[in-house]
């Protein structure tokens, strides 16, 4: 069963002039059909302004579709009475780690979600411990978030969402403000959550390296879903990705250039190791 199901989902922003009259409308998301299966790791790609963040905010019912429908775990996001259950089902992690940490101490911040759910104190503590351990931040529980690195802060933010035990986590460019090390930390944490806890993950990003291990990749451009498939399928279309102003992983690019020069490499090579293997095979055939 698909946990997230969107049909003809559209969202329009109204731009107002100085008197507050609508000047023009911008269709940020345009007729998107979206299906995410439970337990999947789905990556959404797209350059700036492609509508991917707007789409993400729909899944947490922060935004409601102007047209079309979106069901999260069978609940309609337009139904106000179910909004809090939807937010509990689909947790959300944002881009700026500083602006989403509410507590002044790490454990207090992780406890914020369960506190809002009205859980008894002992149960909150249990969840805080579990989720901080799941993201590897348990030793930092008594620290002030201000003293942590960007990657650590983002892991605390993830723990804060995990503590609410969502079935699905939406991460809206969680690594955009981090250094390469922080990026790796966060992506590894998210992958582990997906594998060990079987949490459905929707990762929105424009870093290709974070996408190659996803189960499914969705490419967005100008509010529409333009490509969908496994990373292998998507990265077989290097030309199309380039036309949409998206990068491809380095190994894919090297393989693509070699292909153009006449080397019979297969399509959709994603990692350096894969590329090395294929090249080794080729040498074996020739030698």
């Amino acid at each position: 069963m698909s946990i997230i199901r969107g049909r003809k989902l559209s969202y329009e922003y109204q731009r107002l002039d100085e008197e507050g009259n609508p000047e023009s409308t911008i269709r940020a998301v345009d007729g998107v059909d979206l299906d995410v299966q439970e337990g999947d790791f789905v990556a959404i790609l797209g350059h700036n302004g492609s509508g991917k963040s707007t789409l993400a905010k729909h899944i947490n019912a922060i935004l409601v579709p102007t047209e079309g429908t979106l069901y999260v775990d069978g609940k309609d996001t337009r139904d106000e009475s179910q909004i809090w259950e939807i937010r509990q089902t689909a947790g959300m992690v944002f881009q700026n780690p500083d602006n989403q940490i509410i507590g002044t101490i790490v454990d207090e911040d992780v406890g914020f979600g369960p506190e809002n759910m009205g859980m008894p104190s002992e149960a909150i503590w249990k969840r805080v411990e579990e989720s901080l351990k799941a993201v590897g931040m348990w030793e930092y529980r008594a620290h002030s978030p201000n003293k942590l690195s960007g990657g650590q802060k983002q892991r605390v933010a993830i723990a804060g969402v995990v503590a609410m035990r969502p079935k699905c986590i939406v991460l809206d460019e969680p690594t955009a403000m981090l250094d390469p090390n922080g990026r790796k930390e966060v992506v590894r944490t998210v992958q582990e959550l997906n594998r060990k806890e079987h949490v459905t993950v929707l990762l929105i990003t424009h870093y290709m390296e974070e996408v190659i291990e996803a189960d499914k990749v969705i490419v967005m451009d100008q509010g529409k879903v333009v490509m969908q498939g496994t990373p292998k399928e998507i990265f077989s279309h290097v030309e199309e990705l380039k036309a949409r102003r998206l990068d491809v992983p380095q190994a894919t690019l090297v393989a693509y250039e070699l292909q153009k020069k006449g080397l019979p490499l297969p399509d959709g090579i994603l990692s350096m190791a894969e590329l090395a293997d294929e090249l080794e095979k080729l040498r074996g055939q020739r030698g």
Partner: peptide, 11 residues
């Protein structure tokens, strides 16, 4: 941003 993050976490 913070208001949105708080709402997203059920506040």
């Amino acid at each position: 941003d913070l208001a949105m993050a708080m709402e997203a976490r059920g506040y």
